[in-house]
Design a protein around this nucleic acid. Sequence first.
DNA 1: AATGAATGAGTTTTCATTCAT
DNA 2: AATGAATGAAAACTCATTCAT
Lengths: 211, 211, 211, 211
Amino acid sequence: MGIHERKQREKEMRRKQIMEAAKKVFSAKGFNRATMEEIAGEAELSPGTIYLYFKNKEELHTSLSIDLLGYITSLMKKIINIKSIDAEEKMKKLKETFIDVYEYDSMVLINLFHLQSGETLQNLSEEVLERLKETSANAVSAITSIVKEGIDNGIFVEKHPVALADIIWATYSGVVLWVDSKRLLNNEKDFVRQTLETAFEIMLNGFKVKE
Amino acid sequence: MGIHERKQREKEMRRKQIMEAAKKVFSAKGFNRATMEEIAGEAELSPGTIYLYFKNKEELHTSLSIDLLGYITSLMKKIINIKSIDAEEKMKKLKETFIDVYEYDSMVLINLFHLQSGETLQNLSEEVLERLKETSANAVSAITSIVKEGIDNGIFVEKHPVALADIIWATYSGVVLWVDSKRLLNNEKDFVRQTLETAFEIMLNGFKVKE
Amino acid sequence: MGIHERKQREKEMRRKQIMEAAKKVFSAKGFNRATMEEIAGEAELSPGTIYLYFKNKEELHTSLSIDLLGYITSLMKKIINIKSIDAEEKMKKLKETFIDVYEYDSMVLINLFHLQSGETLQNLSEEVLERLKETSANAVSAITSIVKEGIDNGIFVEKHPVALADIIWATYSGVVLWVDSKRLLNNEKDFVRQTLETAFEIMLNGFKVKE
Amino acid sequence: MGIHERKQREKEMRRKQIMEAAKKVFSAKGFNRATMEEIAGEAELSPGTIYLYFKNKEELHTSLSIDLLGYITSLMKKIINIKSIDAEEKMKKLKETFIDVYEYDSMVLINLFHLQSGETLQNLSEEVLERLKETSANAVSAITSIVKEGIDNGIFVEKHPVALADIIWATYSGVVLWVDSKRLLNNEKDFVRQTLETAFEIMLNGFKVKE
DNA sequence: AATGAATGAGTTTTCATTCAT
DNA sequence: AATGAATGAAAACTCATTCAT
């Protein structure tokens, strides 16, 4: 391993370290009330250092989302590549993946869905926006390919695959946000898992061609 | 009309006037970048006056959402009370209402769905939080009653009515936010209408008991 | 009683009513955190009405002090006029009066002594300042006359009567403020009475010519 | 000198620089009319910087008082430690010290005595309040030790030493405030020095056991 | 590369006071 | 005389970001 590679790797580790700290603080305080100083403290670095790795607060925040989005997409790609099961089975696995991700990192997932806001998007740099678009498009296209397979095989109703993929994704984000807000408003238990289960069951049922 | 009633009415009009101005400014700038001074200017009032009618910026913002939520609920109640149609028809009308509301006031609707965030909820006064909870519960209970009718009549699958109502609402908010963010990210056209159409069609299909 | 006199009397009563309310609120909140609106509420009047009777907040506050100062002076004058006792006895009665006043209305008395601050004095109108000066001078002159009698009769040491009167007054205010602050700082019991007793005893002892 | 020590020293100097500026502005304008911006300007710093060193306006103000109080106490401790003189002589030196301090920094001294107000005390942080209590207790205890010596040696009357110390301190603050207010009210000359001289003479006379 | 002290623009909010009714 | 809605100036304070070291 050359000296350059080691430097590169160290740099990458420092980035992760900052993101890990940011995740904690954003989760605890929300975007507005989290301060760069606190994130720096959590990462055991100085505020100035964070700016060597991230252009600004907004982009640090968005980076967390992009990361998670990429991770979800990678999981979905694995599902797509399974040869032995059909689209309906893949949809079921998709549902399970969604639930796993929620349970693994609910706060960042919630942030990710909140990112879908004009106010936030307008403040991002061209570059990060580009990365976000790309990662987002990848996620949708992964879902799309599953849906397409279902339509091609005559299992799913004939709707445009992208439209169906959007609906899957929208339902995912909608359920996560909605049930979370019910939890906050009414001190209810966390019903995201059950609600996602039901939502995807209904959706899958709705997708299927009726004989 | 007594003097007291006139005063009361004037007061109510002033509130509306402020909310109208706030709606404009929040829509144009988003919550954070909107300033109370600008809202005051838009309402042709002084900043101090706003504070006679709303405790703070957060609550002014939330009031817009509560209002819209109450409006949606009132529309849903009308649908519920139609005697001549069954639950499936009512669901279709619900979808149409949702689309109408989106087209009538998309910005406030988007705000409403963004309200579902811990950061925002934590800053509200007990009183406004209570009003929000109540209005929100009313909305869900309206949907629930339609769903319940469908289940009772053997048209819809036997799932808990509240769960299904949550899914309807979550899908509504998810689609609105998701398609809006796609529009912002990719400069796409506004596909909310079509996507809602499809989403509700799929959902309705998924709700129905198969013979 | 003519109509004019009745009006006059009503006006005076309204003033008292406002001052009574102001006393409560200033005592509870301190000058800065007391608001005119709260005082108005306490007096069951509107804010505007207060301004018909007092030029501004500062003067309303000062009026309370002037009133109390005038009351103390009237008590002192009674003592002066007692023919049957000598200056030493009068000093003792003075001490008792001071203690009584403290116990009757400690908050206003504390305010009165805090009034001795450049910041406050600079904001008063010429007229109220004049009344304050006059009332204050009356108070000192009452004490002075007792001291003078003592010096003239050879009971008290030969110091200038005004200087001694100042010291009496300063000690009174100093003890009241100091012991009150100790009470606030250390949650001590209220030792003003005992401390005043001792202070005046020491002072009287110090005043007396030694044989 | 290590790098850490130099940093520490620089930090301390910056604090002093801010306090020096604050002293000027508070003296000229009084607490309420002084603005943080003006203090910052006077210190040739930005407003934000002040908040790196002092939590808020209130605490910056109180810090000035605590400093002076600590200084007075250190002077008193020196007096206590003089072996060659008795309590009566020490009391005389105490008086001189009090006068010196007044002449050295009358505005801060006046502020210090005004600090004795519930309104102010209630806004301080636990930490600063603690420091104030401690410094204040030290001051009283210094005086107490002188008084105690006098009582033990049979020179002073048998009163409780703390009570006598309170009276000394109360008289000091009372005279300073009272004479200052007379100066403001009546444009009189500054008679604090003379009045303090007389007050302490009287008090000392009063303290002494009569043969 | 890392630091962290300093910046200073920017905004909410308060409340004494006024004045049309 | 009384009201009380409206005013609007005024200021404390925060915190993302910079840059000299």
